[in-house]
Amino acid sequence: MGLFSFDGGKKESQPPNTRSQRKLCWESRDAFFQCLDKADILDAMDPKNSKSIKSHCKVENEKFEENCAHSWIKYFKEKRVIDFKREETIKRIEQEAKQRERNQ
């Protein structure tokens, strides 16, 4: 990452503001989350999972941390959990609706 090495210290004060920076961050996020999926980890913020993340997705996690601002990392990790729960809820409601139809 020679390109970004010179503004490495600036990154915290200036989160990615251009399209290419955002793209880089999103890509490393997707790679990290894919790895989490494989390792069957949902909440990356949970300290219980930190060991498992270190052993399974060390490289992806480092890239993610490198390419995204801290606030974004926190946001994406929280969003992953919320999105998962929302999908679960939608699935559950749909199943309940189907069951009610069958019962009628």
């Binding site: 989160p15 990615p16 503001n17 399209r19 601002a69 606030s71 974004w72 994406f76």
Partner: peptide
Amino acid sequence: FSNCPDICP
């Protein structure tokens, strides 16, 4: 806001 992670862009 310009630092919006994903929705604004």
